[in-house]
């Protein structure tokens, strides 16, 4: 309830804020205002909401799956993999489609999926996964992916290189309703899969063997979460670039507010994630006055300290 309210308020604020503030009264009369509002601002705010909800939900799911409060698409390298896939797609040209699906979606999905597979393999080698090892692997994956992206930029022409650069930091710039429908086609199945897994994830978050003994098919749930997460992250990265730390900040804010039940955390992260990225994007659009910041820079600025705070708290717990 509270979160639905937060989401509603954020939507209105995000719709209002912008380089040219639009008074809602003008919408009935002013043709220019109407065009600006419906063609640019509304789709963009919707996009921010979808991406934010997706990233937060994936973050919450991965934290439960790996029993690691620091897990999220960026820290596990899944975003990096997606970014590499998308860069390859951009280098080869934006427009290509395979059976009506933008090539960049597929490439980014493949990239996230590959990164997820590496993390999965690593998590499965031993009976115990060192939480640190998982995050280190994520960092390394991000580095490797980033190096490849740089190399690709080197070998493509100037305008495409700039496109890649702008897009890797994370921005919700590119928008139109058409793209939103196409994204939803991929995101909705992903969202539903994660929502269906909420109960299993709640038990897995305690410990895998206990979950198994309570009747959860842990391997199957795990694979479904991996697949859904790669799909969601791939599509959002393809459109918005690597927008980091949303999947970290939002689920932890939800935890502080509503406790540790994953069945509560998942839907709440979905709503709060949408609100959070809409507001972050509104800040990105307005803070400079003229021009705009990439929204990825805003979320990283907010998320970095949260990550460090969580790390410190975890170390204190481990020391106890």
């Amino acid at each position: 309830m509270l979160l639905a309210l937060v989401l509603a308020v954020s939507t209105v604020v995000a719709l209002w804020a912008g380089y040219a503030p639009i008074a809602f009264a003008d919408l009935s009369g002013d043709e220019m205002a109407r065009l600006l509002f419906f063609r640019l601002r509304l789709p963009r705010v919707l996009m921010a909401g979808m991406v934010g909800a997706s990233l937060a939900m994936v973050g919450a799911s991965l934290q439960a799956l790996f029993r690691n409060p620091l897990a999220e698409p960026l820290t596990l390298g899944v975003s990096g993999g997606g970014a590499l896939g998308a860069s390859i797609a951009i280098a080869f040209g934006f427009g290509a489609k395979v059976a009506g699906v933008p090539f960049i979606f597929l490439a980014a999905f493949a990239g996230s999926g590959a990164a997820m597979l590496v993390v999965y393999r690593l998590a499965r080698t031993g009976a115990v996964v060192m939480p640190g090892a998982l995050l280190l692997a994520g960092v390394v994956l991000n580095f490797v992916a980033a190096s490849f992206v740089v190399i690709i930029q080197y070998f493509t022409d100037y305008s495409r290189a700039l496109q890649i650069l702008r897009w890797t930091i994370g921005s919700l710039d590119v928008v139109g309703f058409d793209l939103i429908w196409r994204m939803l086609l991929f995101l909705v199945p992903g969202w539903i899969t994660l929502a269906l897994m909420a109960r299993d994830l709640h038990l897995i978050a305690l410990d895998e063997e206990t979950a198994e003994s309570l009747g959860v098919n842990v391997r199957r749930s795990e694979r479904l979460v991996y697949a859904a997460s790669s799909l969601i992250v791939g599509v959002t990265v393809a459109v918005g670039g690597t927008i980091g730390f949303v999947g970290l900040i939002v689920p932890h804010a939800v935890r502080l507010l509503f406790g540790e039940d994953v069945r509560v955390i998942l839907p709440c992260s979905f709503l709060l994630g949408a609100a959070f990225l809409m507001l972050a994007d509104a800040v990105a659009r307005t803070v400079l006055g003229v021009g705009e910041l990439p929204v990825g820079a805003i979320t990283a600025l907010a998320g970095g300290p949260v990550f460090l705070w969580l790390l410190r708290r975890q170390q204190r717990l481990a020391a106890m």
Binding site: P131, A205, L206, R255, G259, E260
Partner: peptide, 9 residues
Amino acid sequence: GVFPLTALE
């Protein structure tokens, strides 16, 4: 365990 669930949970 990692997450501070309550004993009742």
